[in-house]
Amino acid sequence: MLETLFDTIDTVQIDGDDRLFCLRPLEADPALAASIAVIGLTQPLRLQARPDGLYRVVSGFHRLQAAHAAGLNSVPALIFDAAAETLEIFKWRLAEIAHSNPLPPLQVSHAIARLESGWSQSREDIIRTFFPLMRLAPSPKLYALYAPLHQLSLSLQRLLMQDALSLEIAVALAQRPASDQHCFHGVIQCLRLGKNRQREFWLLLTDLERIEKRPLTELMDKNPLAAILAEAVLTPTQKSDQLKSALMHLRYPTYSAAVDRYEKILRRAKLPPGIQLRPAPYFASDQFHLELSFRSARELRRRLRVLETMLEQGLIDEMTGLA
């Protein structure tokens, strides 16, 4: 049983750089600092005394940082003894965070990294002993999935913590160089992509990387992709549509060429809004769908005339011969 003692500790005695127990990236939290400035620290930190007379943080990294920002000179704390096994404290900490829900993937990843670097725990030990503490199934697959996440850039880790980054993409990005992470983060931000669309763009981009045998950054530097992202007057939605279309042209050139030819035919036909003429999705079958709307016999005759002209000009033949 790990014992703690309550005390008030001068902030200068706490080594905030000792991150042995830290499970996520530290970021300034002005709102927390403002609240601490007004009402003080309501929840004590957990610290461990170190043999050198200083303290390391067990929990409350953000509160300590906010306390510094709020100008507090001392903080209330529950203190673990210097003689307590750090690994035991770490276990206690994991169990505490996961007491009602499984640890989120990013924190699992940081925990794995700490266990491996701080206490030389093997992968098997982590899965067998520590995963249940984090309320995770002892699954090697889960380990492989979560372990790399701490290698994400801080901005991507932030997105992941905010549940604004698809886990699948996060895992893939964590195994990529910082330049790729930065590049795709830029795409997400610029287009304001939700998780589903992140997957869609990621798949297109990574397939193109392999097809064109160029790294992601080089691909995105190329026009028209770079130009679309840099365009100042377009909204994020317009940029997404244009970027997607540009990527589709590169990824599916034969299909995209057919789509372009089809649209050209429609433009030549000058169809009024009351006529919708659509091929089967992806031209997968030879069927076309025609939708006509009209309000009077006169209008219907006009619409039919447009279609007849299309037939006379050979546009329907061109259409059906497209794919």
């Binding site: 997968a284 079958s285 794919a323």
Partner: peptide, 22 residues
């Protein structure tokens, strides 16, 4: 494997196939 990099698109039966002209 590079087979997934072909121009494979959903068909009428929902399976991915190469674009019909291919």
């Amino acid at each position: 494997s590079e087979i997934v990099l072909g121009e494979l698109l959903p068909g009428v039966d929902n399976k991915y196939r190469y674009f019909k002209p291919i």
